[in-house]
Nucleic acid binder design. Structure first.
Lengths: 215, 215
DNA sequence: TAAAATGTACTAACTAGTGAGTATGTCAAG
DNA sequence: CTTGACATACTCACTAGTTAGTACATTTTA
């Protein structure tokens, strides 16, 4: 009578899937694709292993879903940047600062990308969603560089993809190689001081690069 | 009678170990630690799985040996640099060029380091050999920077470890993230032109950074 | 002839994936 | 408004195949 609806089940497919993805992101980014355990994911979830296969078909299917979710997040962030009304140098500094902080606060994303590179980006290639990422960031950078040249703030004509790579490389490396670098050089890369100094360094390096040379 | 010594065995422990390490490097750098298969390594070897355990004890032991071997190689390279008789800017450009080419021609090393970072450098920490790597490169950079400041070629006082990181990040990222970056931006990072342009870019960026500001 | 090096064949444990059935929500018909 | 039919969401227990690691016998070397 009273105990009738005690252990009642609630159907909530969206929450179930989201829950699985959340846990799987953590598992895969910590242990890699091969190292990640479906059983471990299932256990940390409020649901069961069977549901993982119900929704995602296979371990790889789940991994791919995790990857797509991670990329969808960053795409949104990049699209939200409003740099056209800032002067070129300030625009670029803002962009660098955003990239820097994104990587710093999303180590899971960084790790997933590292893992995907170990797999030669094989899953990414198979995912339309990720492959067709509209890389608005490149247009943004191109326009900032053009304005900089036009206004005489920048003297060097640089390829926007190359500039993006110069920025990304540093921001990404700081996070992706935090452990080996930290171990070898006995330096904690997450200290606030170091963080600020590095953020300033990459910005200054990029700006000074664009202000040197004429090529 | 005549067939007695036909299939005779030759004991050659050194060659056996070297053979295993060679194959294991390839296997682990391609599939990661969890993804690498001991049986797969054994098969590609001229010896058997039994010998892997005889010499390296466990899969992790083998992985650690592979990692130590990879680091030993780069240490030698760095130690061989003779930059003290070059003018500061040229010395730095030589160093950058060497780092760039090292990463470019040793993707296995780059991948192993990536993998080790996924494991939070746990194995590296346990290895005296790697942890106690004498990082001569930092002293080399420090001395070049000092000479540059003294001679007025460089105006900015920079931390040598930071400078090393700026250089390493770019060189490493180009290789480590080749696949995802290449996929998203549809660019082949191994084309000779791209390679040359990138090598020039990181050198110019570092030099111009050191020549800007006074901090 | 003893110690080091090697080959063969095996096992225990793990791990991705599944078979088969149950619960829940919703919607149409009575 | 309530019954029952259907689709979606879910549970539990199981399995087939893989994989790290080993027992034991044998050969080579010094």
């Amino acid at each position: 009578m009273a105990a009738k609806r005690q252990n009642t089940r609630k159907n909530d497919p969206q929450r179930t899937q989201e829950d699985i993805l959340e846990v799987a992101t953590e598992e895969f980014s910590t242990h890699g694709l091969a190292g990640g355990r479906v059983d471990a994911i299932a256990e940390k979830t409020r649901t069961s292993k069977r549901m993982i296969y119900y929704y995602f078909g296979s371990k790889e299917g789940l991994y791919l879903a995790v990857l797509e979710r991670a990329y969808r997040k960053i795409r949104t962030l990049e699209a939200d940047l409003q740099l056209s009304n800032l002067p070129p140098e300030q625009a670029l500094r803002t962009l660098i600062s955003t990239t820097f902080e994104h990587d710093e606060t999303n180590p899971d994303f960084v790790r997933l990308v590292s893992i995907e590179n170990i797999h030669h980006a094989a899953h990414m290639l198979r995912s339309d969603a990720i492959r067709d990422l509209n890389v608005s960031i490149i247009e943004t950078i191109a326009s900032v560089l053009d304005r900089g040249i036009a206004g005489g703030v920048f003297t060097r004509r640089a390829d926007p993809i190359d500039v993006h790579m110069l920025i990304s490389a540093f921001c990404f490396f700081r996070v992706s190689n935090r452990y080996t670098f930290g171990t070898i050089f006995r330096r904690d890369l997450s200290e606030p001081e170091t963080l600020q100094r590095h953020k300033g360094m990459i910005a200054d390096a990029v700006i000074s690069y664009l202000q040197s040379g004429t090529a």
